[in-house]
Amino acid sequence: MIKMLTACGAGVNSSHQIKDAVEAEMKKRGYQVSVEAIQIKDLNPETMKGVQIFLPINKPDLSFDVTVPEIDAGAILYRMPAMAAPVYDKIEDTIKKNHLS
């Protein structure tokens, strides 16, 4: 299972939409992926533990260094295939390049 993390301000709408969309699309592409959706204020080295890809939505200003690959996932929110596809491709490339599983 590949572990990813996404975060938005309230932890209610945007992050859950990214979670649902990325999990569904990556399953379609043949990957076992689990995305956790949390509030930005809860992002810290502790919550990042075990995370293999970070999927920020709104270019958050973090007080610590993210040491795993980061892929800007905001475009997925539009629910338009043409906007989302490049994000999914980048996620798949990152999985392959880093041999994540």
């Binding site: 709408n13 945007s14 859950h16 939409q17 959706a37 929110l77 629910r79």
Partner: peptide, 13 residues
Amino acid sequence: PEGQSNVLAQIMD
């Protein structure tokens, strides 16, 4: 937030 259908997704759709 864990509800069946995502409200933001419904707005965008």
